[in-house]
Design a protein around this nucleic acid. Structure first.
Lengths: 145, 145
DNA sequence: CTGGATGCAAAGTGTTTGCATAGTG
DNA sequence: CACTATGCAAACACTTTGCATCCAG
């Protein structure tokens, strides 16, 4: 049981410990949920349901608190699909964006070197120090056309 | 009094009538609020407060319903600053984007031909028919650095 | 053993819905 | 005069807060 819950302790967990964060069962479970989600973008409720499916007791409050914590510590990244729900994805590179099909909901990710270029132009023209940007694109995917 | 409320009936109002929408006092007042806002991006509550300041009785429900209606009819455009509030701006060209200062809240708008180009690339690569996109950039403005 | 993590209950915020009434075209 | 817009109250979904208890380091 203990073993089931501990799963494997990977880089993310070590990262958390390095940052002085406590590594609780629930936090590990949340990380596992994101690993299993394989790049999908989960809302607090998605996480909660996944935990329930894995028979891990968890409270919505705890999930919200941990998602926010992990986003602050840059373990998760906050993304916003303009649907009124906070979503998160695992880790790292903020330089990919999303292409949504407004019919079937299919989601494609794309890198965007153009945006890096654009960011440079913006820096020159406005003097802003750019911290983050998010581009969401909506359209109809080939299958739905 | 009647005259005060009617203000001037411009293109937007004619546009509404053309679409078969009723032009009520409150709708005109809401349009006036956006005109007076001079390009700023207003939440439902902002609109409500502005109406109150102009001594126009209006109910939150009505404001929500009309903002949604006008967005559907492409009189307003829905924008989302990822702060949990729906915002709207007047009209037209969707091809400008926003640069937010995360310290002072200053807001710059910028056009983006790069994004049009990007959109073309996405169309070619993915086969999506792109309907809309929104880019929000966050950073520190020169004054705050 | 001590301070942070958790659960529970309740409050909060922004938005939506149902229904009766008022007002526009 | 018909049919839509409005106000009001209540419901709603998602998220946050306060406090007592629990547990990792």
């Amino acid at each position: 049981m203990q073993q089931e819950r501990t799963c494997f302790v990977g880089q993310i967990e070590e990262n958390m410990l390095d940052k002085g964060l406590r590594l609780t069962w629930r936090r590990q479970a949340i990380i596992d949920v994101f690993r299993a989600a394989d790049g999908r973008h989960l809302s607090a409720d998605d996480v909660l349901q996944s935990l329930k499916a894995r028979k891990i007791a968890a409270n919505a409050t705890t999930v919200y608190r941990n998602l926010e914590l992990m986003a602050r510590e840059e373990i998760l990244r906050h993304v916003d699909f303009h649907d009124g729900v906070c979503r998160y994805e695992l880790g790292g590179s903020p330089d990919h964006h999303h292409l949504h099909c407004t019919k079937c909901g299919k989601l494609l990710e794309f890198d965007c070197n153009n945006l890096v270029e654009l960011a440079n132009i913006l820096v020159k023209e406005t003097g802003f120090k750019i911290e983050r940007h998010q581009l969401e694109v909506y359209g109809i995917c080939p299958a739905c056309r």
